[in-house]
Every structure is written in C-alpha cells, then in structure tokens.
Amino acid sequence: MIPFDYQRAEDTRSAVATVTARPGAAFLGAGTNLVDHLKLGVAAPDLLVDVSHLPFDMIEPLAGGGVRIGATVRNSDLAVDPVIRQRYPMVSAALLSGASGQLRNVATTAGNLMQRTRCPYFQDVTTPCNKRRPGSGCSALEGYHRDHAILGASRHCVAVHPSDLAVALTALGAVVQVEGVKGARSIPIIDLYRLPDDAPQHDTVLEHGELITAVDLPALPMATRSTYRKVRDRASYAFALVSVAAAVDVERGTVRDVRVALGGVAHKPWRARRAEEALRGAPATDDAFRAAAEAELAGARPLRDNAFKVPMARNTIVATLRELTRREEP
C-alpha cells in the first residue's frame, strides 16, 4: 500500500474537478471495496477524495412517478426504504442478498455499482490480469473460472460483475446520474457497464473524475411484483453463481410485459432482452419460460469449468418466473 493524501470533499463540483485534474486520484465512498484494493495493491491512488459526506443521502420521488436514489444512500437504508420495498421489491431483495448486515450498513449505492470483480486473479497482483494490468493476459481463461462469465466475455477477460443491486437496476432500466467537469449527464444503467472486449480495464463508460450522484428508478408499475433470486454456494454471505432479477405482468395467463436481468454470468449485469422478447405475448407457462431462457442462453459460451451455469441460469429463470406468476394469480 503506497501512501496517499486524503481530502474530504466540500462539494460535488470541487470533488469532480480535483479528481479529474489528478490522474492518480480516486473517489472514496465507504471504502468497502476500495480499501480491499489498497491493501492488495490492486489500486494505488495518490489521493482519495472522500465523497461519502456529500448531500446525496436521500430517496426522493421524481416527477413522472419514478424514484431518485442518492449516491451515498447506504445499502441497508435503500433496502428497507418503504417505497423501495413496496414498489421495487427486487431492489430490496437484491440488496438483502448481498454481503452482510454490517457491510450493507456502510456500503453506498454508487459504491455498490462501482465495485469491481472478485475474480481471484484480478485481486492477486502476483498473477497476470488484463483488467488490472492491460496486456498481461487473462489468468482465469485457463485457470480457476468456476465463478466466471458465460455470456459476452472475450479472450481478454472472463470476469463477472459482482453487484446484486446492479442486476435489479438493470432489469428495471434505471438511469444513472453522473457529474463531470463538462457537466452532468444521464446514463441508462444498461449503457453504464461495458463488456470486456479488448479493454477489460474499463468496467464502465465513466471517465476519470466523473462521479455518480444518483440513480433514478422509472415508474414501473409491474415492478411491484418483482423479485431477485440468487443462487450461491453458501446460504448467505456469498457472491452469486447465478442470479435473476425479474418482474412480470401477466393478464389472463398471458405475459403482457416482463423484465429479466441476470447476474453472475457476464462482465456486466445482463439484461435478458431475448428472453423478454420471447415472453411478451407468450403464455405464462413453464414451457414458455424455458424456451425464453434457452433463447437467451443460446449465445452462452461457457468455459471449461463453468458450463453448469447454463442450466443453472435456465432453471433459475424458469423458477423465478414461475414463482412470480404463481404469486400473481389470485
């Protein structure tokens, strides 16, 4: 761990300006992932700008029926917020399935979205990793990759994104509000995250110095019937092998609309658009769910030791949709 300077941000503008102007600077939220990386040598900033005290700790209604979640809202507070619980249960469920109570109490919304892969090679500076050191190679490709990607990976990187929250937000079509030196911009979360391609060092499209200030949830009435199913090795306190965030609107046995996103399968939270398309207008039956899941997973390219994720993802999609639609029927 190399020494670094520390500043507590006075306001967003100066924080963004400071970090943008200094290539070695980084934003500090709660630190639940960054401090990991400092200790391991994965990150070596020369300045931390602490943004955890900026006034982004509110959950507020948006005109048009949506909800704005401030960037520094703690995971626990977001999960237990009455509006979130009632209108976006998949968000609460995703958060509550992540980490532990004592981590959720400090971890922030933006920090959760910006956390980095738990690929063991990324976290071990003694092994090659293109995400950590571009051009050094991907150790996971031929190594230990049971937890790794089956969709959208490249030969440069097969890591998966670890966030549960981001999967739910991706299913909902949330929009991330970002502040930069050139001003503010809104980025649909689906566009925030990147596939690895040949530049896996970039998890997101954010530029150095850009700061997430809020996440906007759309008014999506069907989300009141949504859920998040996480499959993992341990019953608790473990990252996903596969997870599914889903919301479904069924009328008289037919799917009117549906949202599905997958976690644990790709470099980014994976919006299952093919499955959604296959399901719209289809009967709400196991067969239709299975066909939709298979349509989504047709493009899966598993590695030597994670082919199980394909049937696991398929079965979990089916089980989650079955559970939601069964619940919906009176």
Binding site: E142, Y144, R234, A238
Partner: peptide
C-alpha cells in the same frame, strides 16, 4: 482450496473465495 497448477498456489485464497459454513448454513 483450488490449486492453480500453473502458478502453484491456491487460487481462492481468502474468506470470500474459500467458503466456510456461515451461520445460515
């Protein structure tokens, strides 16, 4: 403990990678 035969070390060498039972298990 998953041995990475190329590097000669356990790949999952922490408590996030090497699972021991949690209370919920």
């Amino acid at each position: 403990s998953v041995m990475d035969v190329r590097f000669g070390q356990v790949a999952n060498h922490d408590f996030a990678g090497y699972h021991i039972a949690s209370n919920a298990d």
